[in-house]
Structure formats: C-alpha cells, structure tokens
C-alpha cells in the first residue's frame, strides 16, 4: 500500500494550522514556526524574516532523521524532540504524524523551557488535526 500523503493546503482547515503557528510565534524569542512534510517541503510557515524554505525544510528532516537514527543506535526508540543549540538561538523540531514535523526557530533570548513546554502542548492538537486531514 502506498504511503503517499497529500496535504491539501488550500483547505479551509488550513487556517487552523496557521492559527496554531501564529500562537507559537507569539512566544518570546520565537522567530519562525513551520510544518514540514516527509519530503522536506514546508507546507505552512510563519516567520519574522526571509527564510530559504526549501533548504530549511530538507535540513530539518535530515537532522531529525539523523538524530533519531543515532538515538536508536544507543537503544533509545521514539524520538520526541530534537533541539539544535546555536550561538544565535535554537531550532526545535518535533514529529507530528505521517512524517510531518513541527519546527520552531528561536533567538538567543528565548526561554528554552517555555518554548519546549508550548511545543509539547501543541503537538497533540496538531496530531488530531492531521489525523483528520490524512483520513480524508
């Protein structure tokens, strides 16, 4: 059976996702919030400044995949979040469903614990939305 998942971003429900991303953007220090599909394509994004969406989408998937693989090598299964700490801030990525990932980019002054908490609170909501999209 094929595992193709076409997410129709023109659907009106798409605004619910946009609303969720907008809320995440209101957290202190968050400069971009994006949803990335299993091919590394950015399906939804809110950001403060211009971002190369093709490159960031593929990179987030690659980094998440590599981190999950390295975790599996030490017997850790089920990667829930990957945090990339940079001089200028953080990139946090979390799986949603069917290979989709929610990624947040922050500036250095972001409170990591707060961002992480909000991300964890958001995922169940997104999972529910995606399960209904993907079922249709």
């Amino acid at each position: 059976m094929s595992n193709i998942h076409l997410l129709n971003t023109r659907k009106s429900q798409s605004s619910e996702i946009d609303s969720i991303l907008r809320n995440l953007m209101s957290i202190q220090g968050v400069s971009a919030a994006a949803i990335i599909d299993n091919d590394g394509f950015v399906t939804h994004i809110h950001r403060d400044s211009e971002v190369n969406t093709d490159a960031i989408g593929a990179s987030v998937q690659v980094v998440f995949g590599a981190a999950a693989r390295s975790a599996a090598h030490v017997g850790h299964h089920g990667t829930n979040m990957v945090i990339c700490e940079n001089t200028e801030g953080y990139i946090l990525s979390t799986p949603i469903d069917a290979g989709f990932i929610l990624a947040l980019v922050t500036q250095r002054d972001a409170l990591l614990g707060r961002v992480r908490f909000e991300l964890k609170e958001t995922i169940p909501v997104l999972k529910k939305l995606f399960s209904s999209y993907l079922a249709n």
Partner: peptide
C-alpha cells in the same frame, strides 16, 4: 538519516 532520507534525495 532514517526518515530524513527522502528529503535529501528530493532536495
């Protein structure tokens, strides 16, 4: 890369 592989190939 696990699930990241198709993204790399697509890119």
């Amino acid at each position: 890369l696990g699930q990241g592989a198709p993204s790399l190939v697509y890119h």
